[in-house]
Every structure is written in structure tokens, then in C-alpha cells.
């Protein structure tokens, strides 16, 4: 009985941890943290964000170019109408001024 008690006492007696325990523990904790979000995930997230940005830029650029192209076509259409209108008015004026000096 006494032997058992003595053995228990010896086993449960307070002991200081080895000198590098804290450092080892902290480095393990840091290692765990790294394992939670490894580098490749950061890289993947970065790549995803970059591709999203590139996608938005390309889309906006495409929309701008399309808009400029449509604007140029609109200008051409308006120019065609303007010339047609000018010539029709010329004919109209000529008819109205028929017989006068400046018919055309």
C-alpha cells in the first residue's frame, strides 16, 4: 500500500517542462495555422480575384468599343440622311424658284 502511494506520489509530483517546451509548442501552433490556410489557397484566391478583375476589364473594354462602333454607325446614318435631305431640299427649292434667275 505504502509502495503504491509512494509510486503515485512520485508520478504525480510537479515537474517543470523541459527548457524548449514553449518554443516547440508555439512553432507547432504556427505550423497548425499554416495548415489551415496553405499557400496554394492564397495563390488560388489571388488568381481568382485577378481573373475576375481581368474579366471585368475586358468586358467593359468590349462594351466601350461596341458603343464607339455603334456611335460611328449612327453618325454615318445621320450623315446619309443629312445629304439626302440637302439634295431633296435643293430640288424642292429649284421647283419653287422655277422661272426665276436662280433656280438651282
Amino acid at each position: 500500500m505504502e509502495r503504491l502511494e509512494g509510486e503515485l506520489e512520485r508520478m504525480l509530483e510537479r515537474r517543470n517542462p523541459p527548457g524548449e517546451f514553449t518554443e516547440r509548442l508555439m512553432s507547432r501552433v504556427r505550423g497548425e495555422r499554416r495548415r489551415v490556410l496553405p499557400a496554394w489557397r492564397w495563390a488560388a484566391a489571388g488568381a481568382l480575384a485577378a481573373s475576375l478583375l481581368v474579366g471585368v476589364y475586358v468586358e467593359r473594354r468590349q462594351a466601350r468599343l461596341e458603343r464607339e462602333r455603334a456611335g460611328a454607325v449612327r453618325d454615318e446614318l445621320v450623315l446619309g440622311l443629312e445629304i439626302a435631305g440637302a439634295k431633296i431640299n435643293k430640288a424642292r427649292r429649284a421647283v419653287l424658284n422655277l422661272g426665276t434667275e436662280d433656280s438651282l
Binding site: L79, E82, G85, I88
Partner: peptide, 15 residues
């Protein structure tokens, strides 16, 4: 209408 529009489209008076 086309004749009446002339001069208004390109923002200038009768050419």
C-alpha cells in the same frame, strides 16, 4: 420629313 430634318441633324443650318 427628310427634307425638313435637313440642317437639324448635324446641328448646322441649311448647307
Amino acid at each position: 420629313k427628310l427634307g425638313r430634318l435637313q440642317g437639324k441633324l448635324l446641328g448646322m443650318p441649311d448647307l
